[in-house]
Write a protein that binds this DNA or RNA. Structure first.
Lengths: 172, 172
DNA sequence: CTTTTTAATCAGGTCCCCCTGACTAAAAAT
DNA sequence: ATTTTTAGTCAGGGGGACCTGATTAAAAAG
């Protein structure tokens, strides 16, 4: 039987972590407002970029399917990324209905550095703590994968295949 | 000298955690789409709610100051919360320029349950791991507070006073 | 008793995520 | 060869986080 008090304590820390990190990011962000280094969430444009980083050259339809987005939303995000020079669109030669999306060098670099960036706050942890954190997060993530899988197996497949693996490849 | 490989590993897990949690929330969220149980971030309307949960009856100006928002943004968020029946607005009797914001019962309940909610994924952790996680997050949060404090001491005060304490009270 | 400061408001804007509906062009199926 | 399906597009919309500018009402200061 897990100790409820300990759970609550950890839960509180986690929520606090979310809030403090958000605030810290906001501050840093506004300091050098020249570049927008928003930390690439798994959402909208970020979703697209991360997915392409693992599987470049997908069609818009493919992206939409994998990411559980409508074709229109996908088009919107892709177009925004094109404007930011992070991806390119080109018509498929084999099927001229299709639009193939490719990462630009900048796009790839962005996806990589964003993903590979080690936040400064990890510097305060000892090696032992880092190991512990990794172990714990592995368990937590597994649990969340299960949750997703239970709620929506189809989606789980796509998600797992695309981004989870991407992250794993990068770090292990 | 902290092991860079370990840091990278942990960083990857953290990013993965962010993405998986986001996806999981999204799914749960859409299942019972009747209520919108968005997980109350420290942003916009959520910011206001959390702050009021710790200090009810603030004026809009006070809220704006504490949360580093313009009066207009604050008004917008407050009005949205009023529409959702989470807070009420009333003119101050002592200074009729001021509008005092109060949490409704629903608002308080929302703030509390959202904050006090223990995510299911913590069930998979042992007592030892929960302790480890708490210790680690405490260090991380402290580090982030430092970052905020260094970048903007004024803001740090406000932030610390309002929400950090709120969370701490709740869980300890 | 004016002038100035303060708390709020309305109006309008930027950008983000994401969706439905309506419509074209190209490929696949009949 | 015609119908149907598929991939994308445009138009428009809802909600969210913020912001600047202009204006009003009330309190504080001169």
């Amino acid at each position: 039987m897990p100790n409820l008090a300990k759970q609550r304590k950890a839960a509180g820390k986690l929520i606090e972590f979310g809030m403090v990190r958000h605030t810290a990011e906001e501050l840093i962000h506004r300091e050098h407002a020249d570049k927008d280094e928003h930390p690439l969430r798994f959402q909208g444009q970020g979703k697209i970029l991360l997915t392409l980083a693992q599987a470049d050259g997908l069609s818009q339809k493919e992206l939409a399917t994998r990411l559980n987005l409508t074709a229109q939303s996908t088009a919107e995000f892709v177009n925004k990324l094109v404007k930011k020079q992070l991806v390119t669109k080109e018509k498929s030669t084999t099927d001229r209905r299709k639009t193939i999306i490719h990462l630009t060098d900048l796009g790839r670099a962005t996806a990589e550095t964003e993903t590979a960036k080690v936040p400064e706050f990890l510097n305060t942890l000892t090696d032992t703590e880092l190991d512990q954190l990794t172990t714990i997060l592995t368990k937590i993530n597994t649990s969340l994968y299960d949750e997703i899988n239970t709620a929506n197996p189809t989606r789980f497949d796509k998600f797992q295949q695309t981004v989870a693996n991407h992250i794993r490849d990068w770090f292990l």
